[in-house]
Design a protein around this nucleic acid. Structure first.
Lengths: 338, 338
DNA sequence: CCGTAATTTGACAGCGCTGTCATTTTTGCT
DNA sequence: AGCAAAAATGACAGCGCTGTCAAATTACGG
């Protein structure tokens, strides 16, 4: 049979309530009692029932990881974040649910409501592009559900992690400029994702800082997919003055660009430098290997969840942590010949 | 405030127990009553509390998706399966937990115990290579936890989905033979994974069927990773009679092979045909695009979960479904010149 | 050594649902 | 119409825990 809190109480000679107090790390328990109870829990291998705790108490010890299922079909990026979130949850004895949201249409707000009323979720971790959705954030606020964001930029009043993507993108483009490139194109991500905005801003800032003009015909819209990278590249390759370098807003699109270069017989990096963003596993598996920006996704997931849990514990704790990025200079970028 | 079962009961003029019966689709409820209750549930927007149901009843409406975290760091393959499983769960109003298992050492069995005692899991979906682990299966049996497998081959007494991987691998190799190749090498996956065994068996069978000898020096061990593909390829490329075609047991290793071919200046498919297995997104993103076998992972996840849930509903229902595979003949394989 | 405040502990009800078993209603048949 | 069997419903306790509030214990100052 299952070991219950009551059993631990009997074994220790205290009331169930006291055991409950120890379990929940409430302060008003004498140290000696706490030790006795903890020892008994340990030796009896007591494991509290999440269902009972959720039903009786105000907390469910459940957090959800939310992601957009429309623009992110099964990416390694999300899988890594999930891994990190799961890690942090386990460390704090929380459970995690994953919750894909179809962000087209409005019914995704109902899913939030369902999560909150059905499962009494204690908090959520938001991944881009959900972090950019005002309505979503507002609804969470309404429900009083704590949330942490994995965001491309700093936000006030929000805990989680962020990376200075604009600066990272800028550094990448500056690197290209340093290699002698002047005609540098940019493949933008999905328009209303913050990530697209900030990466593009970094691209423009770097050009401007180097005294180069921002040529609108060198900026083409993509949608973060391999296919959209192909389309964008084809468009860029028809330009009279073909770019000598292309910065794609993520690795998938960069892969599309490289694929298209192959298709029309351009040699990377001899004829064209290419760089991406994210450092997905693919980056090192492409030939030539892809210059990109490393996002430590797993770690970001872990940290975001950790901040969330900290906030849940202390109500008010939990910070917005900045994650350092790291340029990965690989074989897909090279000095402009001549 | 929350709408409870009792509220629905009061509104309908029946006892709570009857509403419970309707909720759980128990047979002994008069059709008229059922309709009344369902209508009330609908109009009051009643949503049962999973915590209460789990605590009071014998079912938790929770299934877990188990995967091996050691040999599968955040793959798209698993992400797609997870997506499918989640899909099926939602359709049946079940919740899903994800549960990575470190299959080295024995403590992963404790994690199973924990899942069962803590969360009262109703069933689990097993992904390879967990499906090959006898101890794991035995432990699940012990706990009386239903499970569905996503397996490379047919198994008796197990529900889930399977694909005839041996035949698929055979077809792929037969295709190479048809293109005129005779020196066909094989990069094997992790030794104790069923998938490795069956794919290798298919490779050998196809050679034998075509009257070709199986040359042990053409069979090299890999471990399903890109890096191991690189290592394997380097080894194969040092052979006196270099193979003209390489069948890698999955796409990642095939990518490694292609990368290495690039490295030493071999042109694919002119100098070397390469094929993989799985049809991950990468397959179409490589240059040249990779010939491989399509595994409909998402669908497999969905179906496996569906069979599991069917079994849970009917206790005894639930089948082992065969999934058809599909050869994807792409640019990485070509006829042997001369 | 006593009174008062602070600390620590416990009694008890109840979270929202389901299992068990008793009770009522309906059905089928003579 | 009348009876046994089957079908439908309900009463009630309790799943394992926590919130509330009261009781017991300890600490402290004079």
């Amino acid at each position: 049979m299952r070991v219950r809190l009551e059993d631990v109480a009997r074994a220790t000679g205290v009331s169930p309530k006291t055991v409950s107090r120890v379990l929940n790390e409430e302060p008003s328990v004498k140290e000696a009692t706490r030790q006795k109870v903890l020892a008994a829990m340990e030796s009896m291998n007591y494991r509290p029932s999440p269902a009972a705790r959720g039903l009786a108490g105000s907390r469910s010890f459940l957090v959800a990881m939310l992601y957009d299922n429309n623009d992110n079909p099964a990416s390694t990026y999300l899988a890594e974040i999930q891994d990190g979130v799961l890690d942090a949850c386990e460390a704090h004895r929380y459970s995690m649910m994953v919750c894909p949201l179809r962000m087209r249409g409005q019914d995704f707000l109902h899913r939030i409501d369902a999560l909150v009323t059905d499962h009494h979720i204690d908090g959520v971790v938001l991944t881009p592009p959900l972090t950019d959705n005002r309505k979503l954030l507002a609804r969470l606020q309404e429900h009083g559900v704590a949330h942490a964001c994995i965001s491309p930029v700093r936000r006030k009043d929000v805990v989680g992690v962020y990376m200075d993507e604009q600066k990272a993108a800028g550094d990448l483009v500056t690197h290209l400029i340093g290699l002698g490139h002047q005609r540098i194109a940019h493949v933008v991500g999905i328009a209303d994702h913050g990530a697209s905005r900030w990466r593009q801003a970094g691209y423009k800032a770097a050009l401007t800082a180097a005294g180069l003009a921002v040529d609108p015909s060198y900026i083409v819209q993509g949608e973060f997919t391999f296919g959209s990278g192909v389309v964008a590249a084809r468009q860029l390759f028809t330009l009279k003055h073909r770019p000598t370098a292309i910065f794609a807003a993520n690795d998938d699109m960069a892969a599309g660009v490289m694929w298209t270069a192959n298709e029309i017989g351009l040699k990377v990096p001899r004829d064209l430098s290419v760089c991406g963003f994210d450092d997905t596993p693919m980056a090192t598996q492409l030939w030539p290997s892809l210059t990109t920006v490393r996002q430590p996704s797993r770690e970001m997931g872990r940290l975001a969840a950790q901040q969330l849990l900290e906030q849940l514990r202390g109500r008010g704790e939990g910070r917005l942590v900045q994650i350092p990025y790291e340029l990965q200079l690989r074989a897909s970028t090279a000095a402009l010949p001549g």
